[in-house]
């Protein structure tokens, strides 16, 4: 069990951290989703939340493979110009990512329910933080089509900051789960 959580933790690290050298991601998201999927494959027997997360991880892996061949068209100035099509394309990935993190947090909450470590409460708290940031992001993101990106910069920056902080908190939660499941 702890190895499954361990793989999930490494996978999350690959997904959250973008370490690029010459525009090549040294920690590719595709590998991250594969690690998460392989970790959740073992955990999905425990509860339905992990099962939902497992399915989302595969979808996101397929998505990240597609992205390798599917470059966003550059705008006329060489900068990406957002079209409705570009925005819609992002929606399945955003939803799958939300379901993945939701599944991980709720799965850990269910797995460690009543545990003395209080991991279930920590999972619940981090889930709410993540959902708040992610749903706020889902609400404001489409405004990029109609408002000047300069005007939206602060809102986008704040949302990204909340989501990133929540994802790091989820990563630390998974590390705690590794430790707890070793002790169990």
């Amino acid at each position: 069990m702890s190895r499954a959580y361990g793989r999930m933790g490494w996978g999350l690290l690959f997904v959250i951290v973008d370490f690029k050298l010459d525009s090549v991601d040294m920690l590719p998201d595709m590998l991250g989703y594969l690690l998460i999927a392989s970790g959740l494959w073992r955990l999905q027997k425990l509860n339905g939340y992990f099962k939902a997360g497992h399915l989302s991880a595969w979808l996101l892996m397929a998505w990240s493979v597609l992205q390798l061949f599917w470059f966003t068209e550059a705008g006329i100035d060489g900068l990406p110009v957002q079209s409705a099509k570009d925005i819609w394309i992002q929606l399945p990935a955003l939803c799958s990512h939300t379901v993945l993190i939701y599944g991980i947090c709720r799965g850990i909450q269910a797995h460690f329910a009543g545990n003395a470590s209080g991991l279930d409460h920590k999972a619940s708290l981090r889930l709410h933080l993540f959902m708040a940031g992610q749903l706020l992001w889902l609400i404001v993101y489409p405004f990029v089509l109609n408002l000047d990106s300069g005007d939206m910069f602060l809102v986008f920056f704040l949302c990204s900051l909340i989501v990133m902080a929540a994802e790091i908190a989820v990563l630390l939660l998974v590390r705690l789960a590794v430790r707890e499941s070793t002790e169990i």
Partner: peptide, 13 residues
């Protein structure tokens, strides 16, 4: 929040 997100997507597009 999900309803608001749906409205935001549909309205903006």
């Amino acid at each position: 929040a999900i309803l608001l997100a749906a409205c935001s997507w549909i309205g903006n597009v």
